[in-house]
Amino acid sequence: MDIVVCIKQVPDVPNIRIDEHRMTIIREGVESIINPLDCVALEAAVDLRERQGGRITVLSMGPPQSEEALREALAFGADQAILLTDPAFGGADTLATSHVLATAISMLKPFPDLVLCGRQTIDSDTGHVGPQIAEELDLPQVCGVNEIDLQGDSLVVKRLYDGFLDTFRVNTPALLTVSQELSSPHHIPLADLERAFSDREIIRWAMKDLNLKPEEVGLGGSATRAWKLHKAAPKRRGEVVTGSPQSLVEHLIRKLEALSILDEESGNE
């Protein structure tokens, strides 16, 4: 089974700081990581290869430094890594990003049986790219799967969704996006990591290698613009009180009475 895993290098979001004047993200000093759900997808791919044989290709669109994420993915167990990088790809929304990724996948020989993505990324959180690759490549999709089984030529997958546990049978080739519950990514041995950074090759494809035009990629191929970033204005600011637990609790109880959550009590205790 040939599997493609799409990964994205993302800033380690909990450590992000914001430039309050310019309303931009300060990226300096923030570690970059593989999007956590993409690691779950990689682990699932490694597991499927163990059961079924085949090859794992990792694919990432991003600036040149995304190479680190791909090397890490090689250390994780991927067989080959392709970096889609070109200055023209910058500023892409999900429409343009999925176009570049889908074009690269369509150039792979043989065409993969399965494309895996994380359900969403921690930096933009849209969850668009998986379904949009599926649409462009005309693949069936199931998002947020937490179990993948193989039965003959089809996949049997499960997901927890809108309060229901759904089981699907999916013909391959297919695209799945994965949720946290699917697998726990294994620890990468340091020796493998070192080897991935010294001996392994990363394939690089730029815009012309994919036969794409500037108006199809990056800002030009995007339909949306983020034109303003701001912090949410605080909606209300009530009183903030300090004191002993005793006095705080009394304060709280008075508030509950004022809100008619509690019936008023006539001072006896």
Binding site: L95, D125, H128, Q132, G144, S222
Partner: peptide, 23 residues
């Protein structure tokens, strides 16, 4: 932006080649 909406709308937006914002 239910799980279904978040799976269906990206695919639809792509098919229509238009923009989508989420959640």
């Amino acid at each position: 932006a239910t799980p279904f909406g978040r799976e269906f709308f990206p695919r639809l937006a792509k098919r229509l080649k238009t923009g989508l914002s989420t959640d």
